[in-house]
Design a binder for these strands. Sequence first.
DNA 1: CAGTTATGTGACATTCACGTGACACCTTGC
DNA 2: GCAAGGTGTCACGTGAATGTCACATAACTG
Lengths: 236, 236
Amino acid sequence: MSAKKVLVVDDEASIREMLRLALEISDFKCLEAADIHEAYRLITDESPDIVLLDWMLPGGSGIELLRRLKKEEATQALPVIMLTAKTHEDNVVQGLEVGADDYITKPFAPKELIARMKAILRRASSEEGGSELRVGELVLEIDSRRVMLSQKALEMGPTEFKLLHFFMSHPERAYSRAQLLDRVWGANVYVEERTVDVHIRRLRKALQAGDPVYADLIQTVRGTGYRFSPRDLAVV
Amino acid sequence: MSAKKVLVVDDEASIREMLRLALEISDFKCLEAADIHEAYRLITDESPDIVLLDWMLPGGSGIELLRRLKKEEATQALPVIMLTAKTHEDNVVQGLEVGADDYITKPFAPKELIARMKAILRRASSEEGGSELRVGELVLEIDSRRVMLSQKALEMGPTEFKLLHFFMSHPERAYSRAQLLDRVWGANVYVEERTVDVHIRRLRKALQAGDPVYADLIQTVRGTGYRFSPRDLAVV
DNA sequence: CAGTTATGTGACATTCACGTGACACCTTGC
DNA sequence: GCAAGGTGTCACGTGAATGTCACATAACTG
């Protein structure tokens, strides 16, 4: 794997320096920006893999940049970790609501930061793939946002599509409701865990409409959550 | 999720007491050791989820224990947070090099310690993956939460799964009912000891359904408890 | 061998987790 | 403005999982 590019956005040179050191030790390539303008330029010019974004910045706070990134299609998927000196709960909540993938409060252990970065990068890379996913006769077309079963289109809502997408990218593994909320809905929302059940049901229903056998792909793991298991699919 | 076990290693009783209080308020179960010897015994006996390790200890400094833990396969993944009164950069670097997951300098706010612990534990639990335990034809798949025996899935309840998981992680060793309750059910529950017998039976039954030979893996140690013994498995 | 203690086992009540239909709210498009 | 579909939440029903008991059986004791 080639070295990942990390953009550090912070107005304090000492912090940038510290991060640069920590990052380069861990084989990341490091870009630096002291303000929002420079940050935005580097993002479009250099397309980094992840952004470490300080909360307080001259010329507009970090959250403004975050908002802007999440609004534009091209940068929507770009992972962002917020760095904040404040411990106010508010900031965290606000940051996550706008779409930060994680936050970390200063002072932090570099090792922890690196660990979280890796986790997020791993997650991001595991979910990007070809333009379609396939299990037996079931085909999920990512670009056209359609699901085909034996040449026939299945009808389902956006949430069910995302859910199926996630499951097909991570087969044979049980996920808790909390994990699914985190990965499918996003870390920034608060919904009841039982809501997952309802969407699982809707997804099963949609699959069943195509072929009853395929509804069994989604198994419930009692006491834990759900699992997508192509392994147990009866061979046609 | 059941309460995590924290091992506090410090020679000063007052500090241990303080930490115990802070930890128990946050729903951790607390083990204490005053020296390296005791610490090592508790680690092998009780397998805590994380260790808080003082730098200066009688009978060998904390870093020696750390080195030992990181050298041995069984304890390599065990997260360790170093506690140190010294502020010398040296210590920090040395500690992290040997493999401490974080460090914190005295005096520290209990709240911060707890926060860092949680962060590390969260990371640890999300990174365990691709793992499975195997004994002969018996395979316990951790992340798919399934048990396979000769390619066939075994049916069992969550408790039996946890029980088997524990046994397969700690083979060839007899555990009392009290210990099993503690490790499998969790610390703060009150159930009759005989309940263990019933679940042992259910687990044996599940194994037997797959292959009668495998039920003998779980042996009763009269007057003591039970033991999981792959050693005695008849080779097919 | 009888007496005593420890473990195996089936049955049962209760609790708990999950499936499911209904519904109110919010978008979105016309 | 309204209609249509998507979404989150709730209430209810059902079946699985759990803990406990009573009794059977096996293992030690003297």
